[in-house]
Nucleic acid binder design. Structure first.
Lengths: 146, 146
DNA sequence: AATTATTCTTATCAGTTTAGTAGGATATTA
DNA sequence: TAATATCCTACTAAACTGATAAGAATAATT
């Protein structure tokens, strides 16, 4: 039930892009700042790119940048894209539950409530919120060091 | 981010025990009713047994039974036992976050809120609630068949 | 006492996923 | 043309998943 690095790194990478608007952010910059393997990040950014979440510029002075305002990306959009799906059980993958036990399965109640709760959180936080949080943390951390 | 069969089967097995109080429920009965491999259930019930969630009686007329009232088992207790832990990211495993980036990691906000939301759901549902839900589903399903 | 029913224990295994690493092709800028 | 990036494909070790299998131990029944 833990999120894989794919989703977590995708989120942190998107946050890096959001933190540096109006410029091309290079993968190795993200890798260095976030302490993640840059070759691995390359693979993950491909997912973001193919989905149109970011655009790229190749070559020197190249990099990636968001296609929309940070407030238009929810954490849910990013995590679902990178992780594939976030439903707690496979039978809830589709709109209609095709499990033949769905009508008599009491535990389904648990998974439905969990799904609602999870969606409620991740669809309610945007990249803009994370940017704000990051700025706050940076201020606090800096203050602490003095 | 989907739950493994271990947690899901453990929950459904505990529900079976709760549905049949004052009797020894056999693993192969659970397996048949829940359509799960009985050999696999044997392994999972061991976890429940070692944790003291159920007691067993060996030999003919043996089986398993709950040690407490269904209302005293939360879904969270069962899932956490079977799945190991339910925190969305590894760094939240311990009481204190030992990740050296914890102080500057904005995404941690997401995982904290998610953890709260998930815990809120699973710690708020007991086996007694699931028993009630099952009885309701059984009534509805029976009505539909007539 | 023998048979049957059940829990208990340990080992094995094929397939998938995870979390990368590696190498090079392609495009852009200086 | 040299340097800097993105792009693309392949590979891999380790762990996890979801079982299956074989048999020992124990209790009840006949």
């Amino acid at each position: 039930m833990t999120f894989s690095t794919k989703g977590r790194y995708a989120l942190r990478m998107m946050l890096e892009f959001a933190l540096h608007p109006n410029e091309c952010t290079k993968i190795n910059q993200v890798a260095k700042r976030q302490e993640i393997s840059d070759k691995y990040l390359e693979q993950i950014v491909t997912i973001l790119s193919r989905a149109g979440f970011v655009k790229s510029r190749r070559g020197a002075k190249g990099g990636y940048f968001l296609t929309k305002d940070p407030s238009e990306y929810t954490v849910g959009m990013i995590l679902r894209l990178a992780e594939g799906s976030l439903v707690p059980v496979a039978c809830m993958e589709d709109e209609v539950n095709h499990c033949h036990r769905a009508d008599v399965c009491a535990s389904l109640m648990v998974w439905r409530k969990l799904d609602d709760a999870i969606s409620g959180v991740i669809d309610g936080i945007t990249l803009a919120d994370l940017v704000e949080e990051q700025r706050k943390l940076d201020r606090e951390y800096h203050h602490y060091e003095i």
